[in-house]
């Protein structure tokens, strides 16, 4: 099997957040590898936020959707907030039609808004708000 060197999605560290930009059409093993890598990096770096930019993705099928959802859940267990940013309209329409609405995954229009969301989330937590999730 041809598994070239670039067969992993790079994870960048930005302050106390991890940044992933998915730019390739991911096959399933690549998606699973991303989940593994992110889990390890969150623990290694004590990251408090994970930002996944999917603006380059032309489709998100149930497998990729499920992977995004598990990453968000795993991150939450490890005390990091995940924000998925940049989903294209056609992708969003299709995901909804498919029956996948990614409950529990935070979203934002672009990376900038996503980072802001992670920051406010941290700030809210530091305020020791017992009820972290405002309506």
């Amino acid at each position: 099997m041809a598994s070239d060197v670039g067969d992993r999605i790079p994870i960048l560290k930005l302050g106390d957040a991890l940044l992933v930009t998915i730019q390739v059409d991911m096959h399933d093993r690549l998606a699973l590898a991303l989940e593994d890598d992110l889990t390890n990096r969150i623990v290694q770096t004590s990251a408090k936020g994970v930002l996944i930019d999917i603006s380059a993705l032309e489709i998100v099928d149930s497998f990729i959707g499920r992977t995004l959802a598990s990453i968000a859940q795993i991150a939450r267990v490890l005390d990091a907030e995940t924000v998925v940013v940049g989903m294209r309209p056609a992708v969003a329409i299709t995901l909804v039609e498919l029956g996948l609405s990614l409950p529990g995954v935070r979203t934002a229009l672009n990376a900038e808004r996503g980072m802001a969301l992670i920051r406010t989330h941290r700030a809210d937590e530091l305020d020791a708000d017992p009820d972290g999730d405002a309506a």
Binding site: M87, I93, L95, V96, L109
Partner: peptide, 12 residues
């Protein structure tokens, strides 16, 4: 409803 759900996926 689907539109509302799709907009949410996009972050709006």
């Amino acid at each position: 409803l689907k539109t509302v759900a799709a907009a949410r996926l996009m972050g709006a």
